[in-house]
């Protein structure tokens, strides 16, 4: 039997108050791959991404219909533990948002939340921190200042740290909302490379408005327009031979 899809939505609709932002979205995101989500500004990319860990619910006025499954388990419903859902789904935001704690405490934050076993020893924690920071290629730069506050890092380093802090709880899915848009070209390149090294170990869903980035950095690509999913195929096919004329128009730059 094939792996269950990492994410599967069915007839998913979302309203902000009375404004409908998503219409009947059916999308199946393959496990272990990088899927990019493209589309013009305001088409609902962030909204869809943020529905998958239900962080949209922070706003009291959001209402949804339809279903979302993550690795075969429904994430919406009275029997679902939101904490468990968010434990297996990591999110990276558009603006790097490390917590105003030390670098070390940032990496350990999620891990401490979810650790149900006995309290880890200092050495075990050190191990976790080192491994996470090594994975995001930040260890050498930060190993001598783990106790310093994370907000003193450069934006590129902050964004890497925001990825690193997700890893100790071993999520299976990483949601990234334009993770490079606040970075300079050099930082963008570094973070893109990092995302590529995470490929395979994690399923990654990556929102981007940068088509070159989608093309470079993803296996699959989904195009959204005005709250609907228009086309979803392998990145190569989508860019070389789009099926829907609207997709073609977009990748040729005919929408803003």
């Amino acid at each position: 039997m094939a792996d269950p899809a990492a994410v599967q939505t069915q007839a998913f609709n979302l309203w902000y108050g009375t404004f409908q932002a998503l219409y009947d979205v059916d999308i199946t995101v393959a496990a272990g791959r990088i899927t990019s989500l493209i589309g013009p500004s305001g088409c609902g990319k962030s909204t869809l991404l943020r529905s998958i860990n239900r962080i949209t619910e922070r706003l009291g006025y959001v209402r949804t219909t339809g279903s979302i499954e993550v690795y075969g388990h429904p994430i919406i419903g009275p029997a679902v533990s939101l904490v468990q859902v968010r434990k297996q789904i990591g999110m990276v935001f558009q603006r790097p948002n490390p917590l105003p704690l030390s670098i070390r405490e940032n990496v350990l934050f999620g891990w401490k939340l979810h650790n149900e076993g006995p309290k880890a020893t200092r050495a075990q924690e050190d191990e976790i921190v080192e491994q996470a920071l090594r994975t995001v290629l930040l260890w050498d730069e930060t190993k001598d200042r783990l106790a310093h506050t994370a907000t003193g890092l450069s934006l590129e380093q902050q964004q890497k740290l925001c990825i690193a802090r997700l890893l100790p709880v071993k999520p299976r899915l990483l949601l990234m909302d334009e993770p490079c848009s606040a970075l300079d070209p050099k930082g963008t390149e570094a973070v893109e490379e990092l995302i590529w090294t995470l490929r395979g170990a994690y399923t990654i869903l990556l929102v981007t408005h940068n088509m070159a980035q989608a093309r470079r950095a993803s296996d699959d690509c989904a195009f959204m327009l005005m709250g609907r999913l228009v086309e979803h195929r392998s990145t190569n096919e989508l860019f070389v031979a789009p099926e829907d004329p609207r997709t073609g128009d977009y990748i040729e730059g005919r929408y803003g």
């Binding site: 962080i55 904490v83 935001f93 603006r95 948002n97 917590l99 934050f109 999620g110 939340l113």
Partner: peptide, 20 residues
């Protein structure tokens, strides 16, 4: 953004309040 980051990592509102 701090609260959002904490909640996205699975912290409850109370945990976010106390720890962040």
């Amino acid at each position: 953004a701090y609260r959002e980051a904490g909640e996205a990592m699975g912290a409850t509102r109370w945990q976010v309040t106390m720890r962040v």
